[in-house]
């Protein structure tokens, strides 16, 4: 069994000069190709017992009162490149609040802190690979890069699949946001098709009446080929 090789030119290159921090933090050598061994074909597993009851509810998991801002549900499926669900995947998210402000000692933006919003959440996918968060729609925020660069509204995602070879961190954007196409971090991704895959879609069917709009965001991890002697999934 082995994971499909990552296609060259699909992920962002290490060096993307419009994203200035990448200039001094990008390796100059191309990565060395190595075989997949048990070290890459295994990975840590996190059981549901890890989770507290509000870990996936960023509206309520930090403060005494609900967080301020547009209430949303972010949900979807973690699957592999063959469309097979990835159950028991740990999904961790972090984000700015509705004002575009992160709760962090090094954050200097004037956007208001929300005393009831911490900005982190986590969950583990079910047997069909599904996950769900309740949160606040994050605000856009400015960042020191070009003279006037702003990040489109986004949620950061960290995903553990079955194997360390599938480890992935990415960001989710919101359908219809014109700022996506002017962001130097988004533009590190070479193809429009790959960017489109990071844009969550508003789902009117899943939207909760008088409560929260729902956005669907499916995540795809590396798929794997099996030898003919292994069982069916």
């Amino acid at each position: 069994m082995s994971y499909y090789a990552r296609a060259s030119g699909w992920h962002p290159p290490a060096l993307h000069p419009p994203y200035k921090t990448s200039v001094k933090r990008s390796p100059s050598f191309a990565p060395v190709t190595m075989p997949q061994t048990p070290s890459e074909l295994t990975g840590p597993a996190f059981g549901h017992s890890l989770l507290g009851p509000l870990d996936n509810d960023l509206i309520r998991n930090f403060g005494a009162e609900p967080a301020i801002g547009p209430r949303i549900v972010v949900f979807g499926r973690v699957q592999d490149e063959d469309g097979r669900p990835v159950p028991e995947a740990l999904v961790e998210i972090w984000q700015a609040n509705a004002s575009g402000r992160y709760r962090h000692a090094k954050e200097g933006y004037i956007g208001a802190i929300d005393p009831n919003f911490g900005g982190c959440g986590r969950t583990i996918t079910d047997e069909e690979g599904r996950y769900e968060f309740r949160t606040i729609q994050p605000g856009a925020y400015p960042w020191p890069n070009g003279p006037n660069d702003w990040r489109p509204a986004h949620i950061h995602f960290s995903i553990f699949g079955r194997a360390f070879a599938q480890r992935l961190i990415t960001q989710m954007y919101f359908e219809g946001d014109p700022m996506i196409w002017r962001c130097p971090i988004v533009s590190s991704i070479p193809s429009r098709e790959a960017v489109e895959g990071l844009i969550a879609r508003w789902d009117p069917e899943a939207t909760l009446p008088m409560d929260a709009r729902a956005f669907r965001f499916d995540i795809t991890l590396r798929g794997r080929r099996r030898t003919m002697f292994e069982g069916r999934p």
Binding site: H11, G121, T170
Partner: peptide, 18 residues
């Protein structure tokens, strides 16, 4: 393969929050 892997994005400066 029927789907493409979700593209990576930087963890950014506040990865510790999550």
């Amino acid at each position: 393969m029927r789907f493409r892997e979700s593209a990576s994005q930087t963890a950014g400066p506040y990865v510790h929050i999550g």
